[in-house]
Design a binder for these strands. Structure first.
Lengths: 309, 309
DNA sequence: CAAAACAGTTGACAAAGGCAACTTTCTATT
DNA sequence: AATAGAAAGTTGCCTTTGTCAACTGTTTTG
């Protein structure tokens, strides 16, 4: 039913019903933190610290949408309780990098255990088929609500993004592609640093994808010669995949190339990067070359894709 | 992946990820209440009052899982602000029935408008297909999580349940079946009251389905003669349908009949009650009679279903 | 009929968190 | 190179939100 203003009021009502429902569910689950001495907000911060390597307070504020003052106090409490350690950021002496101490990890795992147990108890009431459907549906809800609520921005890189671009890419390639060799790590780091040294704003660019004010993806264009651009360091955070932001990033990079009068663009990828490959193909790239490579810690087929502009 | 204890740790992790995600989403949406002068909890209470006819404070505490003291204060505030009126319950002079005043309704609609607008804005970013998938998935998540978390109890009726059984059934039949005639209303009320008058614990029973400590369904058995039971007043709250509780209620009633040595059971329903019909059929009832009835405000085909015990 | 359970209220108190001013550092602009 | 504006983080002040336990009066139950 659409009402006079063309609003899909039934859909809205259903979604709001779901939100009320989930408010209850979450309220129920939170109770479990009670004996721990930490609040839901604190547990969320702890969790976020544990999953974000080298995080800073602002980053935490952005992702958890919490007040800076409040965050500052939570972090102080954590430090006093020996859960985290801080060291001044190498790139910004206003900021601190936060990491869990052994004690922090212990608490983290303890809280995790509780939460896992709690969810497990719930799952006992469902059979395998129901669990599967539940999971699939949660995935779908997450995907579309991410799409609907995501605060996405694509902007030129800042000095402070570099460590993100390097560290995050190393970590993603390690967990997703099992690239573990030192050769690979050095190759990536050197590549990025070289890009910066030789950076020419008339021909090069490095774009950062921002999600809720935090970096969440990247792409760079470097010049091989005046007519030939290389497309590099392209990645998007897993949670943002499948909602079209990777495509936007690619488009931005291509439009930069056109603006800079490149005639030709190429990139190297590995054959297992299915989603990236299909994006390249859709954008008009064609596969022109491929060879085996055993230097990255796992054997891969590297592919060259090219496109005329 | 199952770990050494047989836990489905991946599923648990995914679900917890979804919970963290939704905590963020809800946090985002709550911000919208800010200017209203009412908190999220207050808004939830207001919403619950508006949707529950004749609700009491405990009921609200049960469904929203809030503290009694806190609830008491919220209700006082609402009354002081002219949003609700209270009158002593007819059946329990400790309790009050709460209803929205015109002013309460006004605020309620205002808050609704805001929330609707907010959701509508989100939906702009999705196409029709995505909206549909989102909705379907939310339905599924809700269904299975209801099943997994529901606190279900089936117990004999108490005096205080009677008004629920009558009012709720009238209201459900009106919205779902368009039974609107006074004849119908009187028929139902009289029927229930007569059941109580003639109630014989050796042959009759009335079972209440409880969901989170509130009544959420019913079934009654009355004796036609020593060998013949009639199955009546069978209904389950919409939000609890499809998760097997209706079936449990039916089973409880049948096992009561067996215990009381009935030889035969029958019931009347209307042909449009698809889900109930299929439950009856699965439980071994057979359709033995049917006729048209125009007395309930809408023409229906009434059906008699019977079963030997 | 007594004991236990229950609906609701109240006081005392703690936790949660918003807001704004302030310091120091960084970035952009001229 | 100078400077203004923005940003990271801290702190004080304050309100709101929520918990807990004791208390009154009523209902239910054995």
């Amino acid at each position: 039913m659409k009402n006079e203003m063309g609003k899909n009021i039934d859909t809205i009502t259903e979604i709001r019903g779901f939100n009320r429902f989930y408010t209850n569910i979450l309220g129920l689950l939170e109770k479990d933190l009670y004996g721990s001495g930490y609040s839901l907000s604190e547990a969320r911060v702890l969790f976020e610290i544990s999953k974000t390597e080298n995080c800073t307070a602002v980053q935490l504020c952005n992702t958890l949408k919490m007040d800076r003052g409040y965050m500052s106090r939570i972090i102080s409490k954590f430090e006093k309780n020996g859960l985290i350690s801080r060291r001044e950021s190498e790139t910004d002496s206003r900021a601190f990098n936060i990491q869990l101490t052994a004690g922090g990890n212990r608490l983290f795992h303890e809280l995790n255990e509780r939460s896992n147990q709690q969810i497990e108890d719930l799952l006992l009431k469902l059979n395998e088929d129901e669990k599967l459907k539940l999971l699939k549906s949660m995935e779908t809800v997450k995907k579309y609500l991410t799409k609907a609520t995501a605060n996405i921005l694509i902007r030129p890189y800042k000095k402070s993004d570099i460590s993100y671009v390097i560290d995050r890419q190393l970590s993603l390639y390690e967990t997703e592609r099992h690239f573990t060799s030192e050769v690979w790590k050095t190759y990536l780091k050197q590549g990025v640093l070289e890009l910066l040294e030789k950076f020419d704003p008339r021909k090069d660019c490095m774009l950062i994808l921002e999600y809720n004010a935090n970096p969440a993806g990247c792409v760079a264009i470097t010049h091989t010669d005046d007519d030939t651009a290389q497309y590099r360091y392209y990645f998007v955070e897993p949670e943002l995949r499948g909602i079209g932001v990777g495509h936007r990033l690619l488009e931005e990079a291509l439009s930069f190339c056109k603006e800079k009068k490149y005639r030709h663009i190429f990139l190297w990828t590995v054959s297992a990067q299915e989603t990236a490959r299909s994006l390249y193909s859709k954008a008009g790239f064609t596969l022109t070359e491929s060879h085996e490579n055993n230097d990255w810690g796992v054997p891969v087929t590297e592919e060259k894709w090219e496109k005329d502009l």
